[in-house]
Design a protein around this nucleic acid. Structure first.
Lengths: 347, 347
DNA sequence: CTGAAAGCGCTTACAG
DNA sequence: CTGAAAGCGCTTACAG
C-alpha cells in the first residue's frame, strides 16, 4: 500500500520547520501566520497526509484506545454491552480492542497483558465467574480497569458498573408469587459471584417476605446456558416436590427451561410460570415470549466506557497516580436499576 | 497506575547496553552469553517489565492489530463473524479493533481513516449495502483490506470472502417447491449488492428450472430487519395473488414474516412454507423453528482474518507493494458454501 | 559476544 | 511568528 508522507517531508516542501508543521496539523496554530498555515494545510491535503499516531502516542503517553475483555461476543448477553462501549468510546474519539476469554482465567490474563503492552488507556473487563482469587495479573496491570456486571472486591480497579441483581430477583420472584404460583424453583447459573449471590438473595427474600420456607431442593446451580435450563427442569420434574414456577438465573436458562417444559407437555405460563433475567434480544422472539428482568446492557457498556474515559482524562489532567484506589472505587461504582418486562403470547 | 521500567533502566542496572537488553528480550539472543542473558531476564522479571509496543511499531512498521468494520455487532448476524476474526487473529498474536458503522457511509469512511491513523496492519470490512460508489476513502486507505460478505468490484482491496448466495437461494426455493408449495414470494433485504443479486438469481433460477413464471409482485424489497418481514407479509396478504411459500432474504425477515402470518391465523409451515437465510443463533429458538440456509459466519470471519494476516506477513517478507492488486483479488477470493438446515417443531 | 549510534515520526519546552 | 534541539522507548545495522 502507498506509504504516507511525514511532517518532515511536508516541512521540506513548505520550507518551514517540522515544529511548525506539527503545530498547524494539531491546530495549536494560534501563533502561526495565515500564509504558512494555508501552505502547510494545502501540502498535507495534496499528499493525503495521515498522522502516525504511534509516534504521537510515544510522546503523549496516550493511545486513545481502550480494551474490552468479555467472555464471548457470541453470547447474546454481550453484543449490547460491546455496542454501548464502542458508541461512547467513539464519541470521545477512542477506539476499542475487544477480546473473547471464554471465561478462562488464562486467556483473561493473557489479554490483560497484551492490552497493557499495546498501551491501551484503560480496560473494561467482564471477568470469569471462576475468578475468585488470583488477581495477580490485574495487580500487575499498569492500566486503569473498570469492572462490569461481575463484581468482586478488588484493589486494582478504579470503578465498577453493576446491576441491582437483588432487587431484580426480588421483582421476578414476587411477580410469580403475585400471580398465584406457590412452589417456585430457582435455576441459577452460578452461586459464587456477587451477581449470583445478589440474585439468590432476592429470591430468598421474596419468599421470606411471604413466610414461605426456602427449599434447598428447589435451588439448582449450573451454568448460564440453555442446555443447563433443559437439564435443571428435567431434574426438578423428576423429583418428588412439585413446582409451578421457576425463576431463572438468566434468559438462556429460561429458554432452555421452556423448551423442556413444553416437551413434557406442560404449558408456559399456564402450568408453570417462568421469569428470566437479562432481557436479551431473543427474549421477545421465543414462544411463549419470555417475561424477564431487563438488565440494561447497552447502558452498562455505555456507562462503563464513560466512567473509564472520564477517569483517564482526569488522571491525565491532574497528573495524579491514584494510588489510593479504595476511595476511587467507592466514588466510581454505578448501580443500574433493573425492570420487569412482562410479555404475553400473541397466540 | 505504576509506570513500567524501560530497557534503558534495565540496561543501567545490568550494566550492559540497551541493544543487548533489546536482543535478549526479543529472543534474538543467540550471540549473548548465558550470564548476561539471565541477568537481564532476572531484572526484567523483578520490575515486571512491559515492552512498549508503540516504540517497537514505530520502527518495525507493524502494529499486530487489525481493524474489523461491521454495521452493527448487535445484529445477530455479526457476533459470529467477529468471533471468528478474533479467534484467528489472537492465534497469530494479533489484536482486533472493532467498529460499528450502522451501515452509514460517513461512519465507514471515518473508521477507515481512524484505523489507518492507528496504523493497523489490515482491515476486514463488511460495508454498507448503500455503498455502490464513492470508494475514495478506500482508495486513499494505506492499509490492505479484505471484504467480507458484501462484495463489490473494487480496486483497492486485496481479497474477499463471500458466500454462495445464488446456490443457497436456489436450495431454499427448491426446497419449498419440492414440498409442494407453488406460489413462492421472495422478501429481499436489498437488491443492489452482489449478495442480494446472487440470492435473487438463485430464486429466479429455481423457478425457471421448473418453468414457473417469476411474478414481479411476489418480489418485495426492503431491509434486512424483522420489521420489514412483518410489513412485507402484510403487503403480500393484502394483494390478490395468493402465496403459499416465502423465501426470505435473511432470518430476521423470516422471523418477522412468521410472526405476521401467525397473527393472521396462518400456520407455518402448514399453510405457508418459509425458508430464511443466514442461520443466526435464534433460528432454532423461535417457534416454529426456522428452516434456513446456513451461512458459515464464524468461518467467514475466521477465513477472512487468515487471508488478511497471511497477506500481511507475505507482503512484509517480500517487501512488495502489491500495486497490481487485480491478480491478488482473484487469488484471494474465497467462496464459502451454504447448507440447508431443516428444523421441525417439537410440538 | 557486546556497545555506540542512528533513527522510526512525532511533540514540546525553549529560545529568539 | 518560527526554528533548533531534545527526547518518547525502542530496533537494527555496523563496528569491534
Amino acid at each position: 500500500m502507498k506509504k504516507s508522507i511525514t511532517i518532515k517531508e511536508i516541512a521540506a516542501e513548505a520550507k518551514v520547520s517540522i515544529a511548525t508543521v506539527s503545530m498547524v496539523l494539531n491546530k495549536k496554530d494560534k501563533k502561526i501566520s495565515e500564509a504558512t498555515r494555508e501552505k502547510i494545510l494545502y501540502i498535507a491535503q495534496k499528499y493525503n497526509y495521515t498522522p502516525n499516531t504511534m509516534a504521537r502516542s510515544l510522546i503523549t503517553k496516550q493511545t486513545r484506545t481502550i480494551g474490552l475483555v468479555i467472555p464471548d461476543i457470541v453470547n447474546p448477553f454481550f453484543p449490547e454491552i460491546a455496542r454501548g462501549v464502542e458508541d461512547k468510546a467513539s464519541e470521545f474519539g477512542y477506539s476499542v480492542i475487544y477480546c473473547n476469554t471464554d471465561d478462562k482465567i488464562k486467556r483473561e490474563d493473557k489479554y490483560i497483558k497484551v492490552l497493557t503492552e499495546k498501551m491501551v488507556d484503560g480496560i473494561i473487563f467482564a471477568h470469569s465467574s471462576d475468578r475468585q482469587m488470583g488477581f495477580d495479573s490485574l495487580d500487575k496491570c499498569k492500566v486503569p480497569i473498570i469492572l462490569i456486571d461481575r463484581d468482586y472486591d478488588n484493589r486494582n480497579v478504579i470503578g465498577r458498573v453493576i446491576v441491582e441483581n437483588k432487587e431484580g430477583a426480588y421483582m421476578a420472584t414476587s411477580y410469580l408469587l403475585n400471580r398465584g404460583y406457590k412452589n417456585i424453583a430457582y435455576i441459577a447459573g452460578s452461586i459464587t459471584t456477587a451477581t449470583a449471590i445478589g440474585r439468590l438473595e432476592g429470591y430468598n427474600r421474596a419468599l421470606a417476605d411471604r413466610n414461605i420456607t426456602v427449599k434447598n431442593s428447589f435451588i439448582k446451580v449450573g451454568e448460564y446456558k440453555m442446555q443447563w435450563g433443559i437439564e435443571a427442569v428435567e431434574q426438578l420434574l423428576n423429583e418428588n416436590e412439585p413446582i409451578d414456577g421457576i425463576f431463572c438465573g438468566n434468559d438462556l436458562i429460561a429458554i432452555g427451561a421452556i423448551k423442556k417444559l413444553k416437551e413434557r407437555g406442560l404449558n408456559v405460563p399456564g402450568d408453570v410460570g417462568i421469569v428470566g433475567f437479562d432481557d436479551i434480544y431473543l427474549a421477545s422472539l421465543v414462544e411463549p415470549p419470555l417475561t424477564t428482568i431487563k438488565q440494561p446492557n447497552y447502558e452498562m457498556g455505555y456507562k462503563a466506557a464513560e466512567l473509564l474515559i472520564k477517569n483517564i482524562e482526569k488522571m491525565r489532567l491532574d497528573r495524579i497516580k491514584y494510588e489510593n484506589k479504595e476511595d476511587l472505587v467507592q466514588e466510581n461504582t454505578l448501580l443500574l436499576p433493573t425492570e420487569l418486562i412482562v410479555r404475553k403470547s400473541t397466540k
